[in-house]
Amino acid sequence: MLKIQNLHAQIEDKPILNGINLTVNAGEVHAIMGPNGSGKSTLAATLSGREEYTVTDGTVEFMGKNLLEMAPEERAREGVFLAFQYPVEIPGVSTINFMKTALNQIRTHRGEAPLDAVAFLKLMKEKMKLVEIDQSLLNRSLNEGFSGGEKKRNEIFQMAMLEPRLAILDETDSGLDIDALRIVANGVNALRSKNNAIIVVTHYQRLLDYIVPDFVHVLYKGRIVKSGTKELALELEEKGYDWIKAGLATV
């Protein structure tokens, strides 16, 4: 589904990603871990098409297409979804209105008819249950005045609505208490299928207790320096990132 080869990216002349190689197949969950500043969020941003990052080398293929050539909205329509670390507050635009516009864009792209108001509402109610989000919240301006947990649940709600092929969860656990974490993780797990894939970007192991990955990759200085299964995350939790750094220093 996703094939990243030798990806280099920078922001304002500062190289952050220094040759990422990663292949993600349908049905898989990959966790990207790493210390602060290792390039985790940059990887998520580059995949979703943030314009302030410049790709200087390498390729990213998504469903056989060159992802890097696409505008952010084209990536979304092809099935890439980014759950933001810091969801943006947009006064005056309700989540419902926004989701309806977005969903119908994506449906049109897939060759499906736009949903009418009734069908949309039905779908919305179904997906709301997944993340235990209340409709009154969705009637309000997008993320405006939402708590940290509400914002993250809203991200997963949007993911449920748009049914992406590839979801990238950028530090979705940051700022969540344990109950909110459980709700968000349950929502994500309910959306797992053999047809889609998820990349979980996280600093801590604790989210991976709930969203159990098939593969864990450790990012350090813009490269994947270690890959393994979920046990690697536990080992990291126990030994800390210094273990990785020390291991690299001796090589």
Binding site: P72, E73, A76, F81, F98, A102, Q105
Partner: peptide, 14 residues
């Protein structure tokens, strides 16, 4: 905000 909306599939102009 513009990027957020676009990342959900909404074209830049819209």
């Amino acid at each position: 905000a513009l990027f957020y909306l676009r990342s959900r599939g909404i074209p830049k102009d819209a």
